[in-house]
Computed example of a mutant assay.
Amino acid sequence: MTGDSSSTFQAGQTGLIVRIPEAEPVVHGWRERLDPSARAGVPAHITVLFPFLDESRIDSLVSSALADVLGKHRAFDLRFEQCGRLPEVLYLVPQPDTQLQRLTEAIADRWHEAPPYGGRFTEIVPHLTVAQGQEHAVLEEIEAGLFSKLPFTSHVSSVELMVHDGTKWQGRASFALRPAPKGRTPDGKS
């Protein structure tokens, strides 16, 4: 749930994320210093949809609909082998990213009033932000330091609803993805 460095989070904002706990030992120190969402309590993650609905709109019907939409998608594995860049942002690239894009599209299709990133960007680029708002030389240094800590993998089996309470982001609910069938890998191959 990153924005530009001038953005501030507001009470009642919500977002949907995929936690990547395996990334914490790799990126925690950088994120705490250089990613505003980390300082606001968001763990290492890939954003599925931000901003989502205001907290005042999250009731049992919305929660049930989220569970239904997300429960139609299978759990999957991600591999992180390299870094990527957006303007003033260094991130880890999740591969493959197709399932992440499908999750975002499914939620945005269900809730048209909540387009990804508030409609600011037309392309969905799944990413795990490490640092933002930094000069090129700083991002180069961080990327060089990350290189020896890659690759790693992560299993994604749920999507978490985060809510900003005015001070910090808090996990509010977790929505399970459908387990991969026995005898098949999470990407559906035998």
Rank of each mutant, 00 (worst) to 15 (best):
D54S: 07
S60C: 02
P115Q: 02
I46F: 02
R120V: 14
F80E: 12
E105F: 05
G71K: 08
R19M: 06
A67S: 15
L34W: 15
V18R: 00
P96M: 03
S64Y: 00
Y91E: 01
V26S: 02
H45R: 08
V62N: 01
E105K: 12
F50S: 12
E88H: 10
S64H: 08
Q101K: 15
D59P: 04
Y91C: 03
S37D: 15
P115E: 04
I58S: 03
I17W: 00
W111P: 07
P25H: 05
G41A: 12
H73P: 09
L92P: 01
F52P: 07
A23D: 03
I17A: 03
T122F: 00
I58P: 02
W111N: 10
V93C: 03
R120W: 04
L70K: 06
Q95M: 02
Q95A: 10
G84M: 08
E88V: 05
C83W: 02
P25W: 04
H112M: 10
A108L: 03
S60R: 12
L90G: 04
V27C: 02
T47Q: 05
R39W: 04
V93R: 08
G118F: 04
T47A: 10
Q95S: 11
Q82Y: 00
L86E: 09
F52D: 10
F52H: 07
H112A: 14
L86F: 15
L92H: 05
Q99A: 14
D97S: 11
H73V: 13
G41Q: 10
A38H: 08
W30K: 02
W30G: 01
G29L: 06
Q99V: 05
P96I: 02
L86P: 07
E22N: 09
V93A: 05
V93L: 06
G41K: 09
E88F: 06
V69F: 06
C83Y: 05
R120T: 15
A108I: 04
D109E: 14
L86A: 12
R74E: 15
W111D: 11
A114Q: 14
P51M: 08
F76E: 09
R120F: 10
V62S: 02
R79F: 09
I20D: 06
Q101G: 06
V42G: 08
G118I: 08
A67T: 13
P21R: 00
P25E: 08
E81P: 00
F52C: 09
C83H: 08
A40N: 14
K72S: 14
P115N: 04
Q99E: 11
K72M: 14
P94Y: 01
W30I: 05
D35G: 08
R33C: 06
S37I: 06
A40D: 15
D77T: 14
A44F: 07
R57G: 00
P115D: 04
V93Y: 03
P43V: 11
I58A: 04
V93S: 02
V18M: 01
T104G: 05
S56M: 01
A114C: 15
E22I: 03
P94A: 01
F50A: 13
G29C: 04
E81N: 15
S60F: 00
H73I: 13
E88A: 13
R33D: 09
A38W: 07
L34R: 13
T122P: 00
L92Q: 04
G84N: 07
E22A: 13
A108D: 08
